[in-house]
Design a protein around this nucleic acid. Sequence first.
RNA 1: GGCGGCGUGGCCAAGUGGACUAAGGCGACGGUUUGCAAAACCGUUAUUCAUGGGUUCGAAUCCCAUCGCCGCCUCCA
Length: 528
Amino acid sequence: MGLRLHNTLGGKIEEFTPLQEGRVGVYVCGPTVYGHAHLGHAKSYVSFDILVRYLRYSGFAVTYVQNITDVGHLTDDADEGEDKLAIAARKEHKHPMALAEYYTASYFEDMDRLYCVRPDISPRATGHIPEQIALVKMLVEKGFAYEVNGSVYFEVAKFPGYGKLSGRSVDEMQAGARMEVSAEKKHPADFALWKKAEPNHIMQWLSPWGWGYPGWHLECSVMSMKYLGETIDIHGGGIENQFPHHECEIAQSEAANGVPFVRYWLHNNMVTVNGRKMGKSLNNFINLKELFSGEHDLLSRPYDPLAVRQLILQSHYRSPIDFSDAALAAAQSGYDKITECVKKLRRRIPQHQGSKIDQNVQQELDGYKQRFEEAMDNDLNTSVALSVIFEMVKFTGPLLEDQGTTGATLSEVERLFVQLGGDVLGVVQKEYPETYSDEGEILSDFHIFDRIRDIARKNKAYALADALRDYLAASGIIYKDTHEGGHWELEEWGKGRYAFLQEKNRGHKADEAMKRILLEIERLFEQK
RNA sequence: GGCGGCGUGGCCAAGUGGACUAAGGCGACGGUUUGCAAAACCGUUAUUCAUGGGUUCGAAUCCCAUCGCCGCCUCCA
């Protein structure tokens, strides 16, 4: 049985078959670039990253399009209000396009750190104004839209399918008291395709209806059509965009083309922070840069981007996820466990002889792979898929302790980790850098302690040795005494943590340890 | 007001009619290892799925009711 996906259109889980055999077009609603990416972006784009990765793993040639919205989203409903980008730009004293450029770069930086594959095409709304005007023109000509005072509205009453995605009827919406009715509209549910711009509006273009700017649903219809065709296989986005955004997209596209717009609609659920909706006004808004650096009042420490990714994968994309410091810490521990296992596995492979693959192990691995695929086929059940990775971790431990395990067998295990945990889930890295850019520098600051500790241990001055270890641990450097001797290790996020400790002045533990070191040394000298 | 979702062990979370005396993670506890730790490894940790009814040979899974929580409909992914 192949991939099955939950289709919002119809509300059921359906077998996935693309329009063209072997090829899939995926369109995902991208960010509006007027601020840094936050937890909600992480959940959404990691979820669709998994979709794309798994489609590719399953053998499909995927074209992944994700737009960058750099104009057109208004601050208010009923198609009134101001352009969000324009407002943010004014606050930062920048041109809206400069602002968009800045936050677009920031967005990609954060998504790269979350290990998301880049979209094949990242079209900008402002780069497709002529196409948007053309679509509006077509809708007017076909009688689905009307012009009033330099603005153009889509006439919902002319499109019988309106409401089929979100399960709303136009009548219901008329009763909706929260919709402010614009005097220009024939019906409250009509939405703007093109808005007339006031002279002081920075972002405006010349159209057949005068100077103006596109309505906020238009770009997705236009850009998906341009790059993926009139009917696309999969359209993804956040559940909050189901209505009105996606409903309007359907209306525009299908009215214009006369063919189905999207075959499978996928919507991911929202995030909460400490059980509450995340909102700028609620003081619980966490962006990704804060999460990775730990610089937020709600966070006790920085978190590894891939640990954040793992937390997202631990629940289903259609379930809400609650971010809390405790949840992040738990995910970080779990992520570390997988990382440690894979690192150790890689270190051991060269130490094990033999080119024969153990058939019992092979059978076991086949079983993991099968269960992994079954889980992913079932509407991308990453939680179960991830649990298979953990079972592999558990399975790998004893193999590494057994000297009889062949190198080829271990290589086979490693290969599956990379394939399932890496290529599909993106929580196992192809290689873990041995040194980080600043690691050498940081470690050299502490090298003297390393030397002292060696001497201390040789002379069984354990109190001194332990104090030194505590001192370094408090600074983000972990000492591990192994059979082959000790070695320092800077945690993967150690650089950030190092800086964090300096900044947040959390060195009191280190200070305490330092006092103990000095006392011990004094004591030792007194004894002599 | 309209629409939707959720309530599973200390925490997170999968499971949507029989292989469930419920996966996996975190945490905790015990053990191996260690000078002591860390890491690693082994083991233990829900007869029970918010509550009360019902359907069924059989329910965490379906139906009804009750309580509680959350979200969308407004910018937000």
